[in-house]
């Protein structure tokens, strides 16, 4: 518990320094969170190159908006929510202009990113998630991986809560088919 408090104090201090324009503190925020942010972007986009671009965008937005962080929630929650928003806005804006089908290069990224404990299953699952239709993938990643509730997802995606649930069920069904092949 003491360590948690120390950690929270330390994060608050780094955030406070970054809010005052301390670029070293901002870099520390980047170093500590880039893996999580990139994971969110990569899973939502299923496209490695675009995930890297948007990870950059997220941190640029963090720098621009960090002054508005008032500590009502954990900084990490604020940051990951911002990342989800950046990706969803980009998906909406570019949906009709960009390729909607994955290239196999993107999927191969997961070969390097798997956990050593259970590499086969993890890679299979990551690949199956990446191959889901965009809306089903988005809901699955937000609900089952990132732990958001349907009402939050519905607000993120500007859809009805029932749509979020239906897409989640669809995603799980498609995953079952893919994983049992």
């Amino acid at each position: 518990m003491e360590r948690d408090n120390d950690s929270a104090t330390s994060i608050a201090s780094v955030v406070c320094r970054a809010q005052n324009g301390d670029r070293a503190a901002f870099e520390q925020i980047y170093r500590e969170n880039v893996g999580r942010v990139h994971a969110i972007c990569l899973r939502l986009l299923a496209n490695s190159a675009r995930a890297q671009e948007l990870t950059q965008d997220v941190f640029v937005r963090v720098w621009e908006m960090i002054g508005s962080f008032r500590g009502e929630s954990a900084f990490s929650s604020w940051l990951y929510r911002l990342a989800v928003n950046v990706v969803l806005v980009d998906l909406r804006a570019k949906k009709r202009r960009t390729a909607r089908v994955l290239t196999t290069d993107d999927l191969s990224f997961y070969d390097k990113a798997s956990t050593p404990a259970n590499p086969g299953n993890t890679v299979d699952l990551e690949r199956a998630i990446a191959a889901l239709p965009e809306q089903a993938r988005t809901v699955f990643v937000l609900h089952d991986i990132e732990g958001y509730q349907h009402n939050e997802i519905a607000a993120f995606m500007e859809v009805a809560e029932g749509t979020s649930k239906a897409q989640l069920h669809r995603a799980r069904k498609l995953l079952r088919e893919a994983l049992e092949k």
Partner: peptide
């Protein structure tokens, strides 16, 4: 069991530092 963190293959900091 999926990894919570997936590090990008390149260090993105130089680009971010430049843009900010």
């Amino acid at each position: 069991e999926l990894p919570a963190r997936i590090e990008p293959p390149l260090d993105l900091w130089p680009g971010i530092a430049k843009r900010t």
